[in-house]
Design a protein around this nucleic acid. Sequence first.
DNA 1: CTTCCTGCAAAAGTTTTGCATTAAC
DNA 2: GTTAATGCAAAACTTTTGCAGGAAG
Lengths: 148, 148
Amino acid sequence: MRPDVHATATERLEAVGQRYTEQRRRLVELLQREGQPLTIPDILRGLPDMKQSSVYRNLADLEQADVVRRVATEEEFGRYELTEDLTLHHHHLICRSCGRVEDITIPVDLERNVDRTLDRVARRSGFASVAHRLDLIGTCRECAASPG
Amino acid sequence: MRPDVHATATERLEAVGQRYTEQRRRLVELLQREGQPLTIPDILRGLPDMKQSSVYRNLADLEQADVVRRVATEEEFGRYELTEDLTLHHHHLICRSCGRVEDITIPVDLERNVDRTLDRVARRSGFASVAHRLDLIGTCRECAASPG
DNA sequence: CTTCCTGCAAAAGTTTTGCATTAAC
DNA sequence: GTTAATGCAAAACTTTTGCAGGAAG
């Protein structure tokens, strides 16, 4: 299995002169438990006694330490998940109706094909150290059943 | 070539009971001219005499008429581009340092492979009518040259 | 002349910041 | 003890909204 998430978080925070406090650990645990990108409101709901300013500040610090990352969405507030190397490389199924984000993996051969090709495409444009983001946009089962 | 952008915009706006006004045409022209997703500040800079509230309102209307769409980024403000069928199916090169977004296309066979595979993956999860979003995240030539 | 659009200003919502206090090392 | 994290409240910034005046059909 992969190295312990908390040990890694501690290391990475220390590397930038910061501490793995109780609150930060609780944020990481929540993100790990939910296993999918959470919005700020989600997080506030999941950790009701954590102050809003602490949530923002700690997520910013965790992001800088490369423990979490902000996920790009069309929504009005941020969504965060654990950094990829603390989970597994994966993609998102995004429901365009309710905004729900679900983690998925895709076949390894497609993954490899995508990686190789994009690397070539990027090099042509002078882009370096490229990662990819491959998301699926559609309508989830529930929204298909009860539109609105 | 594809049908005229302005004719299409007119149609689609009329379909939802709205008009293709001067301001909306200028927004479409700017997005067309720049050929890449623009942030609200970009747009305000590009159309200095357009009021901020009009920009927001018109982009919202154009989005509802399916003439423009909001692009997902990790930034704090919105980015918009013309709807895909008014341009061509494409992807984005996103610089993680300066945030610049550049349009690219990828080889058709990869495109087809991605499409087919994702369709299968989505179906397994109960997702319907799936589109994909495939972006490249890296460092652009300029930021690689002068980091900061 | 009716409907939609625009400008202005104010409000709402999300995120950031200052500062005194508390906790971690 | 020294440095970093937290809580609280206020501020900053992005986006939305109400309403009166103006333009379009």
